[in-house]
Design a binder for these strands. Sequence first.
DNA 1: GGTCTGACCGGCG
DNA 2: ACGCCGGCCAGAC
Length: 117
Amino acid sequence: MTKNKSTEKKSYNFFEDVHAVAKLIPKGRVTSYGAIAAYLGTKMSARMVGWAMNSAHGDKKLPAHRVVNRIGLLTGKHHFKPPSAMQKQLEHEGIKVVKDKVQNFDKLFWDPSKELI
DNA sequence: GGTCTGACCGGCG
DNA sequence: ACGCCGGCCAGAC
């Protein structure tokens, strides 16, 4: 034990990873929590991804509005300052949102594990 | 220190 | 076809 790893924390890595991927989302594209989770290796724990967003709520660089659930539903819009801001942002990106749902979701879907390496 | 929740996903009845 | 339930990980009280 040449070094003490007791002070090491990899938990933070998870949060930073989610933030990093979220920032890498191209404009006009959307992704799902599960996709990010799978990219991080925790596909089963997609809940953590959305939660990581909540912790990064103060980071404007985090395009959380581009992150939706697997069906393209704006599940996290309720967490935005004005919930309507999420849809407005998506529409501003050129994404059509109807009834809090992303249209052409499968086309606008951006998979980090495929687009990114 | 134990318990609960949480912006999800997938399977089963 | 629809609804319900469990799972997984990490932070907050």
